[in-house]
Design a protein around this nucleic acid. Structure first.
Lengths: 217, 217
DNA sequence: AATTATTTAAAACAACCGTTTAATATAATC
DNA sequence: GATTATATTAAACGGTTGTTTTAAATAATT
């Protein structure tokens, strides 16, 4: 960090630090001065290189996405040839790890989670760029499990059920950390969580596909 | 409001408005000046009646809890005599309505959700006062469905699965509003959501209780 | 009715915010 | 090597924040 601080140009340092600080504090709480201080540049640099704090935020978001897509390549769940149950397991496992990874790219999901909980103007772009693709992929998998004739609203609701289980670990992490800390300590705990969510959801989905004619909508 | 502003003493007005504004903006984003303006009191009143902005926040939280418990009496799900499946349905329905009610006491859950997503010092008290009781109740219901010999960790995970599905509508509401707005428009949509979550979870739970000996932990 | 305590009010406080300015240092170009 | 263009700096700007001060108004008590 200290070496790269000397080598990398100020623009790049600013962008990297911005991702960290915005993820940590959120847009409104983060201060230009803190970002500049940690990037070892003058306070005026934000307005020199980027137009404003808000413009820096937007670019930091875009940069974080691009980094995350580079480090976390697209899901193996994309493979259409695999059985849908396995695709679901892969999807949930990948998504949950992406959410709970505290290292480099946990910043990415932190930024998104912040935007969702407390939206700024950038939310619409995030939905298009980062959320809709994930939604579409999971929707396709669920559709495959429930069968093509499944009601569209039911598919949507099942999708929310699965995402909700995963996001619980992100949005309510402060609670889980205190009440069930052992569920979140390390990588294998995360994997166990992913397996539970998969089992829980698959049990529900297969039930749904069996009894769908008896449903009272 | 205008009448009560003249009748109710400044202290009470301040507390009520504080609940609204803190729920709307969060602790850090909310300003003393806005609260005082909406309560029709002088800026100095916050530091006169309460010691500081932070003390006002703490008291506003406590006040909101007490109001919510008064307006939303404890779950019918508490009734031990009912079959556990019905208790689960009652619990989810009540919890989801509490979460999505935009009127008076939606403020209560808004405040809690804010605290969870972006904790202040007050979180510990919230967990004790508001969250643990709900967790314990749901835990008891799940235990009843899975059977007394069910693994404790599995019970915990199922609990998170169910809470996660409910909280999805709270924490990711900004997304649902944009992608599936019809799921959240009114009271009957909320009820339909509660019914789905109940059906989804019951399907998974009954499956779990059937195949528990075949589980690979 | 006089005196004490309590509540309201306007103004100012120091600290911090994002942004701008104006001057200097560095690099690139001719 | 002189002259542009680019990058960096320190300082200040206007605005907002939570909090404090000081004084006036109101209520309560004797």
């Amino acid at each position: 960090m200290t070496q790269s601080a000397a080598i990398e140009p100020a623009f790049d340092r600013l962008l990297q630090v911005a991702v960290e600080v915005f993820a940590e504090c959120g847009f409104r709480e983060a201060t230009v001065r803190e970002i500049c201080s940690k990037a070892h540049v003058n306070v005026a640099s934000v307005n020199y290189y980027f137009r404003s704090k808000e413009a820096l935020y937007t670019q930091a978001l875009a940069f974080a996405f691009q980094e995350a897509n580079r480090l976390y390549p697209h899901d193996a769940a994309l493979d259409n040839g695999l059985p849908p149950e396995q695709r679901l397991a892969l999807f949930i496992n990948n998504f949950l790890h992406k959410l709970l990874d505290d290292s480099h790219l946990g910043l990415h999901s932190k930024l998104i989670a912040r935007e969702i909980a407390d939206p700024t103007k950038a939310l619409d772009e995030i939905i298009e760029t980062a959320i809709t693709p994930q939604f579409n992929l999971l929707q396709e998998i669920i559709q495959q499990i429930l069968g093509a004739q499944a009601d569209k609203v039911i598919v949507q609701r099942c999708l929310l059920s699965i995402f909700g289980q995963c996001l619980m670990f992100k949005h309510s992490r402060s609670i889980i950390d205190r009440l069930y800390p052992e569920l979140i300590v390390n990588d294998s705990a995360t994997q166990a969580s992913a397996e539970h969510i998969t089992r829980f959801s698959l049990a529900a989905l297969t039930r749904f596909s069996q009894q769908k004619e008896r449903l009272i909508p």
